[in-house]
Simulated assay, not measured.
Amino acid sequence: MRILHTSDWHIGRTFHGHPTLEALAEVLGALTAQVREHAVDVVIVAGDVFDSATPSGPAYTLLSDALLALHETGARVIVTSGNHDSAARLGFQARLLRDGIHVLTDPLGIGTPVTVTDAHGPVHFYGVPYLEPAIVRQHWPLADEGVPLRTQAQTMAHAMGIVRDAMSEHEGRSVAIAHCFTAGVDATAGLEREVRQGGLDVVPIDVFAGLDYVALGHIHGRQRLSDGVRYAGAPLHYSFGEQHKPRGSWLVDLDANGLASVEWLELPVPRALVTLTGTLDEILSDENVRAHAADWVCAVYTDELPQTEPMRRLRERFPYCAMVQHQPAVSAQAVERTYSERLRTAVTDSERIEAFLEHVRAGQGPSAHERDLIREVLDERVRAEALV
């Protein structure tokens, strides 16, 4: 059986204020062509189908068009919900979809697989939607050994316990689809929202032991945690922090014994992302313009002083300049050293707050009015603590 593993479409997301629906439609069209070219049997979309819990009308239209196009290739399509999706809104039309398109959003359905049969027998697909402990606790109030579910690790372990129970009743190969942050991944800083990288919300990889393949979503860059546990990443670049990460999906082959091979299929990038660093005049050079006039540009100019109307000047040369940052090389280093030194030597909370403000404001501390507010807040905290 041949499976295409994709995830994190984030339909409706903007890129620095620019809509991405048209670009995403182009990429999903290329993905559909790959499904037809490689004779894919099952397409998996592992969560974060939408970027918002309240998608716009055009976002629903794009999803419907994409699912129908994939279905017309002859492939089965299995979709699960992620943390950005509203499970209710994504799943409300599940029963109205044509045979062969499965939208799995109900935690209570985790133990009921979607079964697809090939020449070697059945393959059971277990869809695990994003599980927020505070929400699913109502379904499993005392999950394992009477302990309430409080973390993603506990919740996913309980869900996979349900999957294993179901696996014991359904002979054949098994594939799980989940949306979570698994130990060992490399996330894009500031991008994967609601990902808690330290501590209890990291799901151990051994939670997924025993399956033939685990298709994960939530991380926007491709990741191989083991041969059979992988993230596909997002089909579009949604941040300059992702610019060097390839876009694509995993082509997974199962034989009679389980996982046979996994191949990466590249997807086209409608508009490349580039970060240009240097003085503003260096960034605006003819050489840069020739190379990057058609790209999304993040300009980081290092002039000692802020320049006049940098975005206007940049967009005259780079029509798709999306972001500009002023990072003076020398003064930034000096401020960083000052911040570290002041934090080490700070004695009072007010001194720490002043050091922080100077750090984020490139050397400018609090005004007289702000000092009064800081003192008032700190005094109020002391009074409150005295009453406890």
Rank of each mutant, 00 (worst) to 15 (best):
residue 94 A to K: 13
residue 111 G to K: 02
residue 146 G to N: 04
residue 117 T to S: 06
residue 93 Q to R: 06
residue 127 G to Q: 14
residue 100 G to M: 02
residue 65 D to Q: 15
residue 114 V to H: 03
residue 68 L to V: 14
residue 114 V to K: 06
residue 115 T to P: 10
residue 66 A to H: 04
residue 87 A to W: 03
residue 104 L to I: 13
residue 113 P to K: 08
residue 125 F to A: 05
residue 66 A to L: 02
residue 65 D to I: 06
residue 108 L to A: 15
residue 133 P to G: 04
residue 105 T to C: 10
residue 95 R to Y: 05
residue 85 D to T: 08
residue 70 L to V: 13
residue 136 V to I: 15
residue 133 P to C: 08
residue 140 W to K: 09
residue 124 H to G: 10
residue 73 T to H: 04
residue 67 L to W: 02
residue 101 I to F: 07
residue 100 G to F: 05
residue 138 Q to I: 12
residue 131 L to V: 03
residue 137 R to H: 08
residue 81 S to K: 02
residue 87 A to M: 04
residue 123 V to F: 12
residue 101 I to T: 10
residue 132 E to I: 02
residue 86 S to E: 04
residue 128 V to G: 03
residue 61 T to K: 12
residue 69 A to T: 13
residue 74 G to P: 05
residue 124 H to F: 04
residue 60 Y to S: 00
residue 98 R to H: 07
residue 82 G to T: 08
residue 81 S to N: 00
residue 123 V to K: 10
residue 111 G to A: 15
residue 132 E to G: 10
residue 130 Y to C: 00
residue 77 V to Q: 01
residue 80 T to D: 05
residue 107 P to C: 10
residue 92 F to M: 08
residue 68 L to M: 15
residue 118 D to G: 11
residue 88 A to D: 13
residue 61 T to N: 02
residue 97 L to I: 07
residue 85 D to V: 05
residue 130 Y to G: 04
residue 93 Q to C: 07
residue 120 H to T: 14
residue 100 G to Q: 04
residue 111 G to M: 01
residue 68 L to F: 12
residue 103 V to E: 09
residue 61 T to H: 06
